[in-house]
Design a binder for these strands. Structure first.
Lengths: 110, 110
DNA sequence: TTCTATTATCGTATATTTGCGATATACAAT
DNA sequence: ATTGTATATCGCAAATATACGATAATAGAA
């Protein structure tokens, strides 16, 4: 890389890219799906279902937290994670703004 | 990594992740935007606008091609790239299937 | 043919991501 | 206090991604 070029791109581009990157791994997709589908979203249950070590799952959860895709609350010794739907809605909106809307303006360039 | 665990996840999870990964970089977002907004989507024009070397842009274009987000046709010495809207629509659909639809079923887990 | 412009690919350096085991931490129960 | 359970963090190794310059390949112009 020699040096990080992220500053050269604008904020919206970086936000979109960061979100996409966060869901850009099958393990994280799978984790999000597990959290979404159950009411009790305890970390241990996720570890049980995923084909990964506990420490690896914990690391993916950390990344999802950092990208604001989930929220986490401590419940005794356990940790409960939830989808942060607001971030998803924001992504949907920005994504459509960037791409789908442009589609109608430019149906076929080649 | 020691070894790639992608086989442990199902096809849909991997497809979603691959798409997300492909747009998970500000340079590629920016490239897609440039292609989408102009009618003549010549590689050289993209290189001019992006703050990256020609070889780097070419590499990003290759990744977008590989992820089926764009199509490329040779036009003499030049190359013309176009958004493959079908892939975008497919992503939108799968994304909603996975996440947004789940939202209504499970408004707030914590 | 020779020169020029355009794009792709190769080789390489560096950065980041992924994954695991070991360990630390925090709480609960005994 | 000790033990057990649940989760997070550390340190490391291997894999991938990012970026660039140099070079190759190709088409068109001179």
């Amino acid at each position: 890389m020699a040096f990080n070029k992220k500053d050269e791109f604008n904020k919206k581009e970086n936000e979109l890219a960061d979100f996409a990157k966060a869901i850009g791994h099958p393990a994280r997709i799978s984790i999000l799906k597990e959290i979404a589908k159950r009411k009790e979203c305890i970390c241990g249950e996720i570890v049980e279902v995923l084909p990964l070590a506990q420490s690896t799952v914990s690391q993916h959860l950390k990344e999802l937290l950092h990208a604001d895709l989930i929220t986490g609350t401590v419940d005794g010794a356990k940790s409960c994670y939830c989808i942060n739907w607001k971030t998803f809605e924001k992504f949907e909106k920005t994504f459509n703004e960037f791409f789908i809307n442009t589609n109608s303006k430019n149906p076929s360039c080649c």
